[in-house]
Each structure stands twice: as C-alpha cells, then as structure tokens.
Computed example of a mutant assay.
Amino acid sequence: MTGDQNDTFARLKTALPQRWFGSTSDSMPVVDSILTGIATGLSFIYSLYAYAKNQTRIKTSSDGYLDLIASDFFGSTVQRKANQSDASFLATIIANMFRERATRNGIIKVLQDITGRTPTIIEPMRPADTGVYGGPLIGYSAAGAYGSMLMPYQAFVIAYRPAGVGIPSVAGYGIPTGAYSTASQAEWSSLSMVQNDVTDADIYAAIDQTKAAGTIIWTAIAANPRPPVTYLDSTFVLDQSQLL
C-alpha cells in the first residue's frame, strides 16, 4: 500500500547506488535494518499526512473532526448521538446540509428521518386537508378538519414519537427466556439504557429548523396515531388520525 512501511522501505532501497549496495533484491542485513528504521518513521509521517488530508473534505472526515464540522455548520442543533458511528453521523450531517426546507414536504421528511413515522399535517387554508362542502375528505367528527381563511401561513402538525428499540438483549419482566449473562438476559435496567431515544425537544427543533420564515406551526406530539374508525353501514374507512 502506498506510504506504508514496506512501500517506503522499497523506495529507499531503490534510491541506493547499486554499485555500492547491490540490487534491491540482495539481502543486506545491516543496511536493511537501518532502512527499516527510517521507513517506519517516514510511513508514520505519511499516515499523518493522509489523515490530515482526509479531514479537509466532509465526506472523508472522521473522528472528532466530524463533530467540529457539525458544530461549524449547525451549532448545537446537530450533535452525535451516544455510540453513533462515524458513518452514521456523516450521513446525518450530509442529510441536514442538503435537506429540503421551507416546504410541507420538508417537514414531513425531517420528521420521518428522526422518528421513523409520518406526521399528520393540517393547513386550515388547504381544502385537501379540511375538505369542502359537497366534496370528499369531509365527515363531521370523522374526517377532515375545520378550515379558516383567517389563518394564513399557519399549519397544525401532529408528530409521533419513535417506537424505540428498548434495551437490546434484555428480556421483559416475567419473560421465561430471561437468564443472567445470556441472550435475552434478565437484568436490572434504567431509562438511561434505552437506545435510539429521540426527545420531544429534538422534534420541536427539527420543525423549527425546517419551517419557512414567517410561518406559525402549531405542534402537538403524540405517542401513536388515533386508530381508524370503520362505519359498518358504509363501504369506506375514515381515517380519524386526520382530526385535531
């Protein structure tokens, strides 16, 4: 590999006068030992150069330099999660850097990315959300929502918390598969052990960073969408999650 100890050693030996030291394939214990020592130092210097070069571009950065990049571009709004790998954090930085913003779809996408769930969005001045008299998507106390011509540049958003993955390898209370020091083990646990936790503050911040300037987004956060309501005397199902 370019720049490693063997490559540097071969380059140094090739540069020696063959009249004095023979060909590069000749074994010269004393000379080879000296060249190996020099090659070790030079290969280390080259590795530092290669590492520093990688940190000058976002897509090849790693370690703490990714945290510095996130701080430069986003301040404290995008930070590495606990135990998050470099590859995962880099993907988060790139996604936020080129994220769609100032649109309805941008809010939907950012909430899908951080929670894994699609939010409910209702714009009071958008007939597709509120329905219209004599049209579809409307049913009193069943579908649609109240509209208003007096609420321009405003929307209601219901965001749903991520389902979460719990605590890996730890069985639930009373589960017969639980056993100490084995898979699905039984263990005293705490909330700090729950992984992939997204806080309500993260959800509010994501919406605030994505919405258009000058707009008002009325936000509610729920654990789960309301279940759909099925009317037995009809052939369709009305989605009650559209209600506020």
Rank of each mutant, 00 (worst) to 15 (best):
Q5M: 03
F9P: 00
A10D: 07
K13Q: 04
L16I: 12
P17K: 09
M28K: 09
M28V: 12
P29S: 06
V31H: 01
I38E: 08
S43G: 03
Y51L: 05
T60K: 10
I69K: 03
A70Y: 02
D72N: 10
S76Q: 12
T77E: 09
S85P: 03
D86R: 06
L90E: 02
A95H: 11
N96T: 04
M97Y: 10
R99N: 01
E100R: 01
R101M: 08
I107T: 02
I107L: 03
T115V: 14
P119H: 10
I121H: 01
P124A: 09
I138G: 03
G139H: 07
A142M: 03
A142N: 08
A145I: 04
P152Q: 08
Y160I: 04
P162A: 12
A163I: 15
I167E: 04
S169Q: 08
G172Q: 06
G174N: 09
A186K: 01
E187S: 04
W188G: 07
W188I: 08
D197A: 11
D200Y: 05
A201W: 14
D202E: 15
D202T: 12
I203T: 04
I203R: 01
A205C: 05
A206D: 04
W218T: 11
P227V: 06
Q240M: 03
L244G: 09
